[in-house]
Structure formats: structure tokens, C-alpha cells
């Protein structure tokens, strides 16, 4: 079963645990500046939204890469950067419509979410379940259930 990160902004408190966990896993230091997932605040911090790569099936970044440094991991479905191949040309950062591939000037390579090879540390670190790792084919299941409750006429009649 392929899995995806499922993000629920309503639950995010902007604590940055995900950014710290991500950078700790990939860089060995707590360093939000090098995190593959980012929290964005809106309305003066009233709302916070985590955002990262959604691992497009037809990925712009993979098509754009001139040296085939972006390779899909068949097990996780994630597009991973092969550091020994990447030449740091940054064409993928231009091609990605969502901005989730970024350049790391410290290494001269690009960085993006690789789902931590199937064990995403952001989801593990999130204290409010704003980020969870679930079956790719059923990311809408909770939302469907919520709406299903609204059309449950038997339930409405009781209320």
C-alpha cells in the first residue's frame, strides 16, 4: 500500500516540531532553514498551514531534470534526489509549480521531501496530528465521514 502525508491545517499550531524533525533527519541538526516541510502563517498567526511536496505522479521536477538526479522510489512513491548525480542546476526548482523543491547553498544540491523512505519524521513529531501518514488512496476518508454525518437522515431525525 502506498502512503501519503495528509495535512489538516485546522489542527496546526505552528509549533515547528515538523520542521525541526525534518531537518534533524536529513541534515543531522535542528535547522528549519533546511526543512523540506514548511509552516506558513496567515491572518497574523491565527491560521497555520504545513506545506510540502505531494509527490506528483507525473512530476514536473523529474521531467525537468537534465541529469536524471530525481528518481522515484517504487516502494514509497516519493521522488528522491540522488545527491551524487544532482549538479545543482536548479531547473527543477523552476519547474515545480508548488515550490516544494529548493536549493541548499551549503551542499550545492536541491532538497525535497522524500517521505523519509517511508517513515516520515514530520508526521511522527506532530503533536496534534495535523500531519499524518495514511493510505494514498483514502486521504479523503475522514472528510467523507464528516460529510456523511450530515446526510445521515436517521441521525438528524433523532436530533
Amino acid at each position: 500500500m502506498q502512503k501519503s502525508l495528509l495535512i489538516d491545517p485546522d489542527k496546526c499550531t505552528s509549533c515547528l516540531q515538523c520542521e525541526m524533525a525534518c531537518s534533524f533527519e536529513h541534515e543531522g541538526s535542528f535547522n528549519p532553514a533546511r526543512s523540506r516541510i514548511k509552516i506558513f502563517e496567515f491572518e497574523h498567526g491565527k491560521r497555520a498551514v504545513p506545506y510540502t511536496c505531494t509527490q506528483c505522479a507525473e512530476a514536473w521536477c523529474v521531467h525537468a531534470c537534465p541529469v536524471e538526479a530525481l528518481v522515484r522510489n517504487p516502494e514509497t512513491g516519493a521522488v528522491e534526489v540522488k545527491d551524487d548525480v544532482c549538479v545543482g542546476c536548479k531547473v527543477c526548482t523552476i519547474a515545480c509549480p508548488f515550490g516544494t523543491v529548493n536549493y541548499n547553498p551549503d551542499t550545492g544540491k536541491v532538497i525535497k521531501c522524500d517521505l523519509c523512505h517511508g517513515d516520515p519524521k514530520c508526521a511522527e513529531a506532530c503533536p496534534t496530528d495535523a500531519i499524518v501518514y495514511v493510505d494514498s488512496s483514502w486521504t479523503g476518508l475522514d472528510r467523507m465521514r464528516r460529510w456523511a454525518g450530515h446526510v445521515d437522515t436517521n441521525q438528524s431525525a433523532k436530533a
Partner: peptide
């Protein structure tokens, strides 16, 4: 303030 240096620990 903004920084890119990160914080490391001795025994991760």
C-alpha cells in the same frame, strides 16, 4: 533574526 546554521546535539 534569521539563521541557517542549525543546532546540533552530542548524542542524537
Amino acid at each position: 533574526a534569521y539563521g541557517t546554521r542549525g543546532v546540533t546535539v552530542d548524542d542524537p
